[in-house]
């Protein structure tokens, strides 16, 4: 570290200035995207929490005529059985965000565990685990997802598990590479010399070091999980009676709305919400990564 900062000071004035500028720019762009992402995600989460207060109707009640266009009573019209689409979307935030977040928690737990083990025992177990990670990364994603969903059946729990089981591999890789450098640190060696058990070292000395990294991965994975949930539900592989943004699109598809003018108020809004949620988590993820990821941190110095 010291040598690098020495080398830094030996550079010409101009280059120092330009590097400072660059760093400032990166810092700013990271901060802006972070704030934007946080705002989007916070808004959506608040909407999900206060769905009851925010939505004009109970989304499961038939509050209007089927296939009504937008009106003062129903701002986004009604669906094929007369349920208010706006209320469906507000309540849909609950399911969509919950599935997205829980699925990426599942992914984070699997990914971090695999990454810790593979990094701590790199010789045999690590190799085996990482080849397995490679396989998961290589498998074409959506077909496998569809296959699993069709095989296991349609329920929230399965949807969460299926998505979680398929998106952990990236996390595992990042965690493992970090663990590989941590185990060579002096304090780990010291702990080992005084006879600390592997479990003790992993839990007390290594896990805290990678936890922040895992959180960053989790936020990014959520973005993907939300998109996957929407894809599954749209294809009719989720539970079609649970109101998520994807199922709103599913019903629009099976009742032929894509061919009618109703796509403007029935297809576009859930589509935009899905994109917005994915974007929000992705922006947050990028910003977090710039702060957390040691590789990016070193580069900026």
């Amino acid at each position: 570290m010291k040598t690098s900062s020495l080398a830094f000071s030996e550079n010409s004035e101009i280059s120092i200035v330009s590097k400072k500028r660059k760093r400032k720019r990166r810092f700013n762009s990271g901060r802006v995207s972070g704030i934007a992402g946080c705002t989007i995600v916070t808004c959506l989460i608040l909407a999900a929490i206060f769905a009851k207060q925010l939505s004009p109707y109970d989304p499961s009640s038939q509050s209007g005529k089927p296939f009504s266009p937008p009106s003062a009573e129903h701002l986004l019209g009604t669906n094929d059985i007369g349920q208010d689409i706006l209320s469906e979307l507000v309540y849909g935030a609950r399911i969509s965000l919950t599935i997205g977040i829980v699925a990426s928690i599942v992914a984070m737990v699997i990914g971090t565990t695999v990454g810790l083990l593979a990094g701590y025992y790199p010789r045999v177990l690590g190799r085996v685990l990482m080849r397995f990670v490679d396989i998961i990364l290589i498998i074409p994603f959506l077909p496998l997802l569809i296959l699993l969903a069709a095989y296991l059946g349609r329920s929230l729990v399965y949807t969460v598990l299926i998505i979680g089981a398929l998106i952990w591999a990236g996390t595992a890789r990042v965690i493992r590479s970090q663990v590989l450098t941590i185990v060579k640190q002096d304090y780990v060696l010291a702990a080992r010399t005084i006879g600390a058990s592997d479990l003790h070292i992993i839990v007390l000395h290594i896990l805290p070091q990678v936890l922040l990294l895992a959180v960053g991965q989790f936020v990014q994975a959520t973005s993907g999980a939300i998109l996957l949930e929407a894809a599954l539900s749209f294809l009719g592989l989720g539970d079609p009676l649970q109101k998520s943004w994807g199922t709103v699109l599913y019903w629009a598809q099976v009742r032929g709305v894509f061919l009618t003018p109703a796509w403007k108020w029935w297809v576009l809004p859930p589509g935009m919400l899905i994109s917005l949620a994915a974007l929000g988590f992705a922006l947050m993820g990028f910003a977090l990564e710039q702060v957390i990821n040691p590789r990016l941190k070193n580069n900026s110095k």
Binding site: F67, D80, R255, G256, V257, L259, T260
Partner: peptide, 8 residues
């Protein structure tokens, strides 16, 4: 044709 297509 499905019922929702009739009116259209």
């Amino acid at each position: 044709i499905p019922p929702e297509q009739i009116s259209m």
